[in-house]
Design a protein around this nucleic acid. Sequence first.
DNA 1: CAGCAACTATATCCTCGACAATATTCCCCG
DNA 2: CGGGGAATATTGTCGAGGATATAGTTGCTG
Lengths: 166, 166
Amino acid sequence: MNPNVFDDPRITAVGLLFEVHAGLSARFAAQLDEHGLSTVEFEVLTRLARSPGNQLRMTDLAAQTSLSTSGVTRVVDRMERDGLITRRACPTDRRSSFAVVTPTGLSRLDETVPGHLQLIEEWFTGQLDPPALAATLDGLRRVRDAVNPCATAGSGGRTEDQAEAC
Amino acid sequence: MNPNVFDDPRITAVGLLFEVHAGLSARFAAQLDEHGLSTVEFEVLTRLARSPGNQLRMTDLAAQTSLSTSGVTRVVDRMERDGLITRRACPTDRRSSFAVVTPTGLSRLDETVPGHLQLIEEWFTGQLDPPALAATLDGLRRVRDAVNPCATAGSGGRTEDQAEAC
DNA sequence: CAGCAACTATATCCTCGACAATATTCCCCG
DNA sequence: CGGGGAATATTGTCGAGGATATAGTTGCTG
């Protein structure tokens, strides 16, 4: 650690990125908490709600979130107990089961999303004028495409659900 | 969730940012793991090593990481057991104790940092040509300054340690 | 200088989530 | 058609870490 490695521009770059992530995450979590949702619960709810039929197989849900399959089992347990989602047996494969959003879950999402969007606007996208925002997002997109090859859905892909193929 | 809220550009913007964070975090964690360090352990080590005397009070260490004070107690326990850091009593305040990096900890850091820097270069900074990188970092910096006011150390500040004053 | 509020580290309890093991079901291939 | 390997969800077990309570210390203030 002799020469000041910590002033290396690469270190400061990731530091920047991670600070932004931490700051936004904290603010989002606070707002979600007002609606009785944790971060992962919100993510599960949105992933299901944006899927056809408001449902997803447990495995696919795990693939779309940052959770393991057992983690998905656990969070779905909690949310089923809270009435936000339900399990439905898969008719074609008796090993699988679907997690499907209940009307309660959908309305909870409806309550939550507007404030969430407002928060994004307030602390992220609204902080930059359009060209600067576009430039920033372009940079992030290129890094994302490198680091997360599965998510290259941008153009030419099919619906957008092939992300679950990763 | 009637109109496709999920195509809202604000949603995709945070999605992008969070995917980048997740992707980089995973790669970093894998490399750190090769050196027997977890993410938080690496952060603790770097925070201490960049501080005067290679030491920090437990409270300040907690403030500089994303850990609670009890979390810091825990991780310092582990790392002390592994010989990476040591506790030293504070001479002026008998409530406080310092966590100080051992020579073992420093050399572990020396082993780890080069690969870490290489990874940053490979997956983040090296993915963009200099102007695009600068633009991206500028955008991130502005968002960071908004979302994390403490970290406005950039210019005019004193050393850089006033970050701990937050 | 006595007492009280704030601060510091730690201990205790609890939730969350990963990993490995398990049971069930599916599918392919001989 | 039958058996073995892959896929799927769940459960047991464990470590990580937050919230709160606790004990010791400091410093201010009447």
